[in-house]
Structure formats: structure tokens, C-alpha cells
Design a protein around this nucleic acid. Sequence first.
RNA 1: GGAGGGUUAGCGAAGUGGUCAAACGCGGCAGACUGUAAAUCUGUUCCUUCGGGUUCCAUGGUUCAAAUCCAUGACCCUCCA
Length: 377
Amino acid sequence: MKVEFKKVYNDPKTKARLGKIIFNGKEYDTPMFMPVGTAATVKTLSPEEVKNLGAGIILSNTYHLWLRPGEDIVEKAGGLHKFMNYDGPILTDSGGFQVFSLAKPKDITEEGVKFKNHLNGDSLFLTPEKSIEIQRKLGSDIVMSFDECVGYPCDEKYMKDSVDRTLRWAKRGKDVFKGDNQILFGIVQGGYYEHLRRYCAEELVKMDFDGYSIGGTSVGEPKEIMYEMVEMSTKYLPEDKIRYLMGVGDPIDLIENVKRGIDIFDCVSPTRLARHGHAYTKYGKINLKNNKYKDDFSPIEEGCNCYTCKNFTKAYVKHLINAEESFGARLLSIHNLSYLMNLMSEIRKNIKSSTLEEFRDEFVKNYYKKDADKNDE
RNA sequence: GGAGGGUUAGCGAAGUGGUCAAACGCGGCAGACUGUAAAUCUGUUCCUUCGGGUUCCAUGGUUCAAAUCCAUGACCCUCCA
């Protein structure tokens, strides 16, 4: 079975949309946040936990699984779904982000990208065709084109060349993509150049992908600029296809970009921040490592229905994090993912009731509220 | 009783005349993290009114200058009786 997308509603006041992703006889609502499980696991959590938190699609990574255990092993296991025992939809990133995070400019050529295996130093070469082939063997449901994710800022000349390369790579990938049980997304790049974003989007649309991602955001640019980059991209994308904003998951960014017409998001933040002792709350992010929580026996978030908040106190979670007990990272991962899942659910409700702007204002007001003011509630 | 070795910041441990308020590690306190080389990385960690002040077991001494050299004492460790 293939992933299908149905757009079901347009917010008359903003560009926000409601939709459904249908997979394996189940429907998942969009806008949606996708937890990241780079190495075929959402770090510290079992697939059951991830599902119970309300997750639909989860992410995995071509580059990481290519290196270890190797796509052939995953294929032999019967594909990622069986290998990791997750029956919801799985999206694989192409390795394009690793071009940004691991490769040096000189390693990028027309043919592909040279990587140094971060595990053992081996020289590796990834091409658009190879990326698609690996993703086929992994058996993910949504496949990403191999692109070049470019940092910010970037000069126009480099960006233009890079967009052209990303487009040629997209075409090469599409040419070898079989699509029997998978769908393929193109990725809009172009940095902070409207004409390049437009050009990239329009060229990809001509190639007719199953969905479109927006890449090259959350690479160090100010938030306002990210929002503009998203606007520069969504404008030129078809209404009836999924729009995926890659790597964005800060709570406020989720709201802002849903308003700009994004359907799905992914981000490592909830799980990485969790491992580093941070928790999302209505009043912003808190750092459980802070000494002030050592004897705070209240839950991370009053009224939160997650397993962590229903059963444990800040002081306990703080102790686990300080003692480097892995259960602490698990408890915070549960809370943070639950928080984002709830946020997406609230966002969907507010799209339905045409109150997304008001919801955003109220959310932002609370999120940036200073400690001192919280007691006045 | 004899012979050696030792005592440095919260802890461990470098330093053996000036460049030492004293490397480094741990612990502590903060910060960062956005398609995960990330249970990682960064800053800070004697006091201070930021001018400076007071430190390297204690006391006394040598020296322009001492954590560093000398004397005495205290405590710890090893070996020999």
C-alpha cells in the first residue's frame, strides 16, 4: 500500500490546511509532527510508546542506515517496518541533510557527494540514484530526493548553482524511482532568494512529485527569515500535494508554518532536548538540570496527561538526568513528544474553528512569559 | 627506634625560584541544540564594591621575588627493626 494524501479543509483566514494521510487502512490527520528516528528508533522509546503518543509518520535516515546496519540487512529483515516493528508510515530522509552537516563543499560534485564515514573514516560516495536505491531497499513509504541542504547565509551564485544541481539530482532520482509501494518527494531549496525558491519549486512541480518538501531552513537563519523562505516556497506548490517543512519543530515555528500552509514537520528537538534535560512547557522550555528543581515535587507541566507528568515529579526527573540514568531521557522524550503531539492537535482544532491567529497570540504570550509572571496566573 | 615518600582550590592531580590565582580531569553552576557524527558541545567554578584582596598543612627564615629553597612542628603512607 502507498501513502495517500487528501486535503480536506482550507482555513479561510490563513493559508493553513487540514488534511488526511491514509496508510495501511488508517487515517492520520495533518498538520502533523513526525518524530525522528534516525537509526530506525525514536531514541529511548519503543514503537508502541511512539504510537501511543499519537505519532503517525516517523522519520528515519538513509545515510545512517546505509552505514549501519546496511540497507541489505534491513531489506533482508523484510524492510524497515518489520525490522523496527513499526506499522505506521515511515519517511526516510535522503542523506541530503548530511551533505550540510557532514560533507565539505569540495566533496560535492555533479555526480554526487563524497562522505567520510563518521564511524570508521572510510571514504563513501552517495549519489541521487544510490540514495533512492537505498531507500527502496529500506522500504520506507515516503522517499526524499537527494538534495543539497545549504546553510545560511549563502551567496546568490552558489545558491543558484546548488539549486540547479538539486534539480538535476531530483530528476535523476525520479528517473530511477520505481514507486511500486513508495511515494517520492522533491525538495525546494533556494535559500533566502525568492526567485530561486520559485524557480526550484516550479521546476520540481513540472517533474510532478508526489509531495514537496521545503529544505534549507533551520540552518542558522533568524526565525522571520525562515518564515519568509517558507512563504517563498509554498506559494508555488500545488494545493493538493503534501507540503513538508524539513527539520522544523520549535513549538512556535510549528504554529507559524502551519499558518503558511505546511502539512508535516519533523525535528530532532523533542528527543534531543530531552536527552539534554530540557522539557517543553506552556511557559517555554525549562532546563531540569537547573538547581531550582531539586526539590520541586510538582509535575513538569500541571494538567499534562502524559505518562511522565502523571507519574513523576520534576525533582525525580532532574535526579535521573543528573545521575545520567537513561530513564530520565525516556521520561523527557515522552513528555516532549506528547507536548508536540498535543500542540498539533490544538493547532488542528483551531484551524477548524478559524481561531489559529488567536491561538498563536495566546500561545506566544504564555511561551515567553517570564518566571516571575507565572505565579500571577 | 631507623630510612624514605607525601600534604596544592569541593575532590583527584600537575607544577619544584619570577611568565602562578595555580595545567588537566571529575564534581558544581549556567548556556547552546531545529531533515540526529549530538546521553553532545560551550562557558564558568578562592573572595571582591572589579581598584584589588587573600591562597598551595602550620610557623619561622633565605631572597628583589617562594606552592617551589632552608629550619622546626603536625598529620598521612611505605619499608627496616
